[in-house]
Design a protein around this nucleic acid. Structure first.
Lengths: 157, 157
DNA sequence: GTGTCATCGTACGTACACGAACGATATGGG
DNA sequence: CCCATATCGTTCGTGTACGTACGATGACAC
């Protein structure tokens, strides 16, 4: 009841200014990002070619393919993951024999990660499907809009 | 080694067509959505006014404020959450005394959810901060770009 | 060399997110 | 009325995601 009064007051107040519309959850950037990320993950899972590989695992394997050898911490920074999160991702990849680790000879705090032969073989295969997954996710937009969306997203990160 | 050969072949192949650039993880829509969602969540957590309320809990409380009473399943559809995920969110909100439930008199499968007095008071307070959180998240973009991003995101959901 | 401070990896707790399986209930066709 | 089918909510398992705290190591000042 108190809220209804408050809401009505807010509505009449904002209705007068054309620029600000009423606050709706569905129009908020955080909500839209959550939903869009959900859909992208679902498309990834069905299209990447291995249902047991997650988006974060895929990013990690792809970065190791690119750099050959990386410390766990640096890998985390490159793929935008917290070190605590990275720890879990790496542990699972090691358990599956996709990633190997050895102590850094120059810095005893570091663990150097690299792909195993099997991990190399897997990421080579998955990378083929990557473009199709992105294409499917962006399908509702035309080429110019797709480019724009990627640009806008990278600017709010 | 095998991958390096493959990568070079891919590069030289795609370099010839101007439209398709080399495949980089950082430019993929899924990766950008994950990073953008991370940042939005972080801003939400520090700005919404209660560090113990998560974005999904906030959406749920806001929808209950809007509709007064909803079944758990319908609430899940309105905020874009799986029923299994919804179950955990609702359980935590009930444990904290923010949400109440009663059996649907007309359908014994359903549970009707509503805000408690405390839940109503909390969401009224948090909704005040909602616009500032969205504003901060979109800060790197100008007004037209902000509008465009919201439009593009809603179209790929 | 010693103390101070930062960095790296680990461990624990909390909270999404979803697939799969399950039991209870509802609904429509026969 | 009865059965097939669908829906609703729960439970289990796996995997992010992050805050916090911790111990080991490294870097640097003094």
């Amino acid at each position: 009841m108190r809220s209804n009064v408050a809401k009505k007051q807010l509505e009449s107040k904002t209705a007068s200014s054309a620029a600000s519309r009423p606050y709706r959850i569905e129009d908020q950037i955080g909500y839209l990002l959550r939903r869009a990320h959900q859909r992208a993950s679902a498309i990834f899972q069905t299209g990447i070619g291995d249902p047991n590989i997650t988006p974060t695992q895929y990013s990690s394997l792809a970065k190791l393919d690119e750099y050959t050898e990386l410390s766990q911490n640096l890998l985390g920074r490159l793929v935008g993951m917290d070190k605590a999160t990275m720890q879990g991702v790496v542990r699972r990849l090691k358990e599956r024999g996709l990633v190997d680790s050895r102590p850094d000879p120059g810095d005893a705090r570091r663990t150097l990660l690299s792909l195993t032969t099997e991990g190399q073989r897997l990421i080579n295969r998955l990378l083929v499907n990557g473009p199709a997954v992105s294409r499917e996710t962006l399908k509702p937009l035309n080429a110019q809009e797709q480019k724009q969306l990627l640009d806008l997203l990278s600017r709010i990160i």
